[in-house]
Every structure is written in structure tokens, then in C-alpha cells.
């Protein structure tokens, strides 16, 4: 009988901040083709769900792929309990279309949560094309600030947007961005890239819209198969249905219509799969 089930060993597992971890997985076939902005689907065990994670790095020679995740629900808590040497049942990728990389000029990157690490490969590729990069790193407080060094290493300038406890999270990165926009076009912004919560991506897209600065967002609606089969991740782009898994996950933030619906869809299963204490997201249907 031939080998039917293949396992994917975890080669490293680091704790980055409270509830934030980086997992490195041996998956040579995935590492071989990985490009910035793509994602993988992970299944922890044979009874597990398929969960997408944007990749934050890979090593083709070593055959490893890494991603950063935040413990929010059942599967991510299960992941957090695994150690280097344990195995994941399934690991598929790299899925989705890679981020568009070109020479743009001055790029402002806004990152929070998993997006801090997942943006790094994209920014590195931007830099290789000669772009100058200003990064805004958003974190709710000092304790949960992570990824500063890795983001600094791929940016010309790093701005920290660390809110105080209790402060409204979604708006904190907007303050430094507003300042930058105030100097535009004297000190021009040629492109803005945002990776973080849907709320943050929406708010940033609305801020840049009046300035007509191309703003790309990396959308992460719910997915099941991640290969274009189920349509769970469909969203409306300029009036047409697109699937984040095969047409994205990178989209023009100004072309996304129906952010409300997108946010509501994102939270469809929040009550069954998100057990994070105090998880709150204003303005969407489920909470």
C-alpha cells in the first residue's frame, strides 16, 4: 500500500507576544513556489478544519515555510499547544495570487497583528525594486508590540502606533498616516499597503481615497477549501463577485464595495469558533 497520508513536521515554534506565535513547518513543495503575499491552508489533525494563514517567510533550501498567527479560536489554540517536532496533518499552498511588486516610489505600509510579519516578504520585494518604505506598526499596547526589528529591517523609516490600553485600536495607525497625508503631495505617497484587521484596512482605504493614492489591502474572509471551490470567501469588487482565495487576497482597497457585508461574513462563525475573551468588533452583525 502506498503512502496516502503525509505529515508536515513543525521545525520551530516561537512565542512573539501574548497570544502571538510564529510557526515554521517543513513543506518543501510549498516552499519551492512561495511568493510574497500568498497563503497556506493548515489542517491540524484529521478532524481539523481548514484554516488559511498568510505566509511570513520561507526557505527554499531548507524546505520550510513560516507563518504568524494569533490565538483567537479553536484551531489556533490547538496550534499554540504544539511543539517543534510535532506534525500537522495537512499543509497546502502557496495559494492565492502573489502581491503585485513593482517600482512605485514611496510606499507606506500599515501593519497590525499577523500582518506585521506577513508584510515583511512583500516589503522586502518592494525594496529590491528600489521603493522607499515608511512602515507604520500598530499595536494595542507595549506588551503586545512585536515584529519591530523585522519590520525595521525592510523599511527606511518605522513609525510606531502603539495605543494605550482601552484606546480605540482601529484608529491608532491613522494618526501617523494622517500626518503623512498632510504632507502629500509635497512629500508624495505613491502607494499604501495595509495588512491587518478588516476594520483597519477599511479605515485606511477610506483615509487615502480622497487623495487618490493607490491602496492595496490583503483580505482574509472566511475560507473552506482555499482553491476556488466553495465561494465562502466571495466579496464584491467594483460590483463583481471575486473570490479572495483565487482572485486575491490582494485587492485595491478603493475598489472593495460592501465592507459591511465583508465584515459580517468574516464573523459568521465568530460565536462558534472564536472563543477569545473579550473579543469585540463594533459594527458587524454577530457581536
Amino acid at each position: 500500500m502506498k503512502e496516502v497520508v503525509r505529515m508536515f513536521p513543525i521545525t520551530a515554534h516561537e512565542h512573539l507576544a501574548p497570544k502571538v506565535h510564529r510557526m515554521t513547518v517543513k513543506a518543501p513543495v510549498v516552499a519551492e513556489k512561495a511568493r510574497p503575499g500568498q497563503f497556506v491552508i493548515v489542517i491540524v489533525d484529521e478532524k481539523g478544519e481548514r484554516v488559511p494563514f498568510t505566509i511570513s517567510g520561507w526557505d527554499t533550501a531548507a524546505g520550510t515555510v513560516e507563518f504568524v498567527y494569533i490565538e483567537v479560536g479553536k484551531t489556533t489554540r490547538q496550534l499554540a499547544a504544539l511543539k517543534a517536532g510535532d506534525e500537522l496533518a495537512h499543509f497546502v499552498g502557496p495559494l492565492g495570487i502573489a502581491a503585485q511588486v513593482d517600482y512605485f516610489g514611496h510606499v507606506v505600509a500599515v501593519a497590525s497583528g499577523y500582518g506585521i510579519s506577513a508584510l515583511v516578504p512583500i516589503l522586502r520585494a518592494y525594496r529590491e525594486m528600489g521603493n522607499s518604505i515608511t512602515s507604520i506598526l500598530q499595536a494595542p499596547d507595549r506588551e503586545r508590540l512585536f515584529g519591530r526589528e523585522e519590520l525595521e529591517a525592510v523599511s527606511d523609516r518605522l513609525i510606531l502606533a502603539v495605543g494605550e490600553r482601552g484606546e480605540e485600536m482601529a484608529t491608532s495607525a491613522t494618526r501617523p498616516l494622517r500626518k503623512l497625508l498632510g504632507n502629500h503631495p509635497r512629500e508624495p505617497l505613491h502607494r499604501v499597503v495595509v495588512m491587518g484587521s478588516i476594520c483597519l484596512m477599511r479605515v485606511i482605504s477610506e483615509l487615502t481615497r480622497p487623495h487618490a493614492i493607490k491602496t492595496v489591502v490583503h483580505l482574509t474572509p472566511l475560507m473552506v477549501d482555499g482553491t476556488g471551490m466553495c465561494g465562502a470567501c466571495r466579496l464584491s469588487i467594483k460590483g463583481a463577485n471575486r473570490f479572495a482565495c483565487v482572485h486575491g487576497p490582494e485587492f485595491d482597497g478603493h475598489e472593495v464595495d460592501g465592507w459591511d457585508v465583508l465584515m459580517a461574513r468574516r464573523c459568521t462563525y465568530a460565536d462558534t469558533s472564536v472563543h477569545q475573551q473579550g473579543f469585540q468588533c463594533r459594527g458587524c452583525s454577530q457581536w
Partner: peptide, 30 residues
């Protein structure tokens, strides 16, 4: 058509059959 709780048959059946949502929470997919 993109409102919540509107599924494609593929998603509804994939969740139910392939991912065994009818056995949730023993199987993780709801």
C-alpha cells in the same frame, strides 16, 4: 447575494460532508 447565511451548495456540502460538520464539535468545522 453576499449576505450572511447565503451559501453556495459547494460550501454547504463541503462543510457538511467533507469536513463532517454534522459531527461538530467532534470535527472542528461548523
Amino acid at each position: 447575494e453576499n449576505l450572511n447565511m447565503i451559501y453556495s451548495a459547494n460550501e454547504f456540502l463541503t462543510r457538511t460532508n467533507l469536513m463532517k460538520a454534522y459531527l461538530y464539535p467532534e470535527y472542528a468545522t461548523p
